[in-house]
Amino acid sequence: MEKNDLLKNLGKFQSLIALALMVILLTSMTDRFLTTDNMWNVLRQISVNLCISVGMTLVILTAGIDLSVGSILAFSGAVAAGLLKNGVALQNANTFIGFTAFGAIVGALLAGYTLGWFNGLMVTRFKVPAFVATLAMLTIARGFTMLWTGGFPITGLGETFAFIGTGWFLGVPMPVWITIIIVFAAHILTTKTVIGRHIYAVGGNETATMLSGVNVKRVKIFVYTIAGVLAAVGGILTTSRLDSAQPNAGLTFELDAIAAVVIGGTSLSGGKGSIMGTVQGALVIGILNNGLVLLNVSPFWQQVVKGLVILLAVILDKLNTQKTD
């Protein structure tokens, strides 16, 4: 009995234990890992994935999936850069609208909002399976990005805009601040609010939730919209840090986000999981990526290792839940 209890409790902290092990291993194997510079570097890299993963967690909690976040990230980033650099020229009205950094950011967020909302509309109003609806959006938003940029990067965006991705505030990088705020807000949302409860309820049993008077469609549109907005935040951060909107930005980011969610213990069938789990999952992936680079592992092997870690996390999780039953 005691041994079982111990195992069970260990299971709860499996990502934390994995994190601790990785930190210990990497610290002993390379002297570049545990340095202040590298730590900030890791956190900065994680921040974009974590932004997206938070949105992904909400969607997956409702038993959905969002494959379009990488493309929405690219499009929103391009929108921000384009508005800032070129503004909008309305030829018919013979007017030109210029944008400040703030205006460009609002524009990017609106772009993410709209595409995310459209995903939600497809899933609810037209009952398109989430996988298909967001797969379609993956290519639609990528297409928009190409149309908007003409296939070329938009660069030279100015210091104000660059501050978001590269600046420091109170000794902490801006992207890390932004991500902390998003994580905190999402944690509160999922644990303390009515809409948060409804998100878990929809994923747990959609029919029962509907029969309890909850507007299930509204909940679903909400999570896809938030996922779109958070992908836009990721786009703004990426564009700002590189001082450039790349048409190919965010490729396969949806896979890293899903991986973080799954490693964090959120069930793909919905109703179970947490934002804090996803934070751990994103840390595992981030530190793994960083560590493999520091250890000079070839990028090809990095991909293999990452895949194996995802499998391992899910297998361990399954073993744990079986034990508790």
Partner: peptide
């Protein structure tokens, strides 16, 4: 299938109809 969200707590199942009044 229709009445309960089985994975949720007893309390959470009970309150789902009246969260408006409880918040």
């Amino acid at each position: 299938l229709q009445g309960l969200i089985l994975e949720m707590q007893v309390m959470e199942n009970m309150s789902i109809t009246s969260l408006k009044n409880l918040s």
